[in-house]
Every structure is written in C-alpha cells, then in structure tokens.
C-alpha cells in the first residue's frame, strides 16, 4: 500500500497537469500557476536535507582524515560566514558583506572556472579531432571549417564565410530538427511511462 500511494499521486498530478493544458478557464489557470509555484516552494523547503548531507560529510571528513581537516575547515568556515551575513533581509541589498562576498569570492572563482573551458576546448579538440573514421572526419572537418572563419586567409576567407553560413543554416538546421523531434518523442514516451507508473526507479523500493 505504501508503495501504491505515491504512484497514484504521480498519476493524478500528471493527468491533472496534462488536462489543464486543454482547459482555458481560470480554474485551470489557477492550477497551472499554483502547481509550478508549489514545486518551487517544496524544492526550497527540501534544502535543509542537502545542507545536512553537506555538513555531515564535511564534518566526518574533518574528524576522520587529519590531512583533510584544514580544507574541511575552510569549507565550513566559508559556509558559516555566508550564513551569518545572510541572516538579515537587508543582506540582499548591494553593499552588504553578504553581497560583497558574493561579488569578490564567488564571482571570481565562478568566472575563472568557466574560463577553464578556453583551455579545455583546445585540448579536447586536439585529442578528439583525428580523422580516424568517416564519422570522426565529419566532426573534425566541420569544426575546422567553422574555426577557420576567424582566421584571416585572404580570398579563402570569403568562400569560407559563405560555406560556414550554409553549414549553419542548412545541414545544421536539419540535424537539430531531427534531434529535437527524436527528443520530443522520447520525452513524451518517458512522460507517459512515468505517469502510468511503469517507470518508477526514482521512487526506490522498500
């Protein structure tokens, strides 16, 4: 029985939200707006679960592994500082310590990790773009042509420019459509499987 109730909840919620799509009345609008809002609220209410997992793991690391103690401490210190500074509503205004920490600690690290991609895109290109097979050559060839558009090569550049435009607007468009139609069908089938309770791995079992 315990296992059945969640499946019924999925079934009812799923069908209600599919049906509301076909009903324009304001009762239906109400369900649509509130449903989305509620999922968000539950997601935030669930955060303590994650925070508990994080704190416990970091704490246990600090206790069990003396080598890691310093770093676990750094993490917990950062967490505590940010928590304390964010306790007041005013902390969300510009100029508060909370926002300053965001600006000068989170943003630089975030931007730098993002910029690592410039290096990784180069090493991935070097490693992967070898003409091993027809498929690999297609991948390599197109990437190569598209990258060439930024390199001044005199008259070749003009031809290349036109070729890149064509690749992007013709074969690129075709493949994206094929992919999206496939993903659409797969997604809808998965939705039906979930609503009907056929796909239920995510619920675990007792």
């Amino acid at each position: 029985m315990r296992r059945q109730i969640p499946l019924y909840i999925v079934l009812v919620c799923g069908i209600v939200f599919v049906i509301q799509f076909f009903i324009p009345s304001h009762e239906s609008e109400f369900i649509f707006e509130y449903g989305q809002d509620w999922v968000m609220v539950i997601g935030i209410l669930a955060l303590p679960l994650g925070i508990w997992s994080y704190l416990r793991k970091t704490w246990l690391t600090a206790v069990k592994k003396p080598k890691e103690r310093f770093f676990a401490g750094v993490s917990l210190f950062g967490f505590a500082i940010m928590m304390l500074t964010g306790l007041k509503r005013e902390s969300l205004m510009a100029g508060s310590l909370y926002m300053e920490l965001f600006e000068y600690v989170l943003i630089p690290i975030q931007a730098t990790i993002f910029s690592l991609l410039a290096f990784y895109i180069a090493s991935a290109a070097y490693r992967a773009f070898r003409a091993r097979s027809v498929i690999a050559t297609m991948l390599l060839g197109t990437a190569f042509i598209v990258m060439l558009r930024l390199i001044p090569l005199g008259p070749i550049s003009d031809v290349n420019q036109a070729l890149v435009g064509w690749i992007l607007s013709v074969p690129n468009m075709a493949a994206k459509r094929g992919l999206l139609i496939g993903i659409g069908l797969g997604a809808i089938a998965t939705c039906i499987k979930i609503i009907l309770g056929i796909e239920r791995t995510y619920l675990g079992r007792d």
């Binding site: 180069a122 070097y126 773009f129 070898r130 003409a131 390599l140 990258m147 060439l148 930024l150 390199i151």
Partner: peptide
C-alpha cells in the same frame, strides 16, 4: 576582442593539424 580570438583560433587549428599529421 578579435586579436586574442584570432590568435587562439590559429593555435587550436594548428594543434588539430599537427595532431592529424602525426596520426597519419
């Protein structure tokens, strides 16, 4: 922005070419 862009693209293209030559 285009200066670093062009040079970086040349570097990547160069490495792809080198990679393929050695591969062959």
């Amino acid at each position: 922005m285009m200066g670093p862009q062009t040079v970086a693209h040349i570097v990547i293209v160069f490495f792809i070419v080198i990679g393929n030559i050695t591969f062959f």
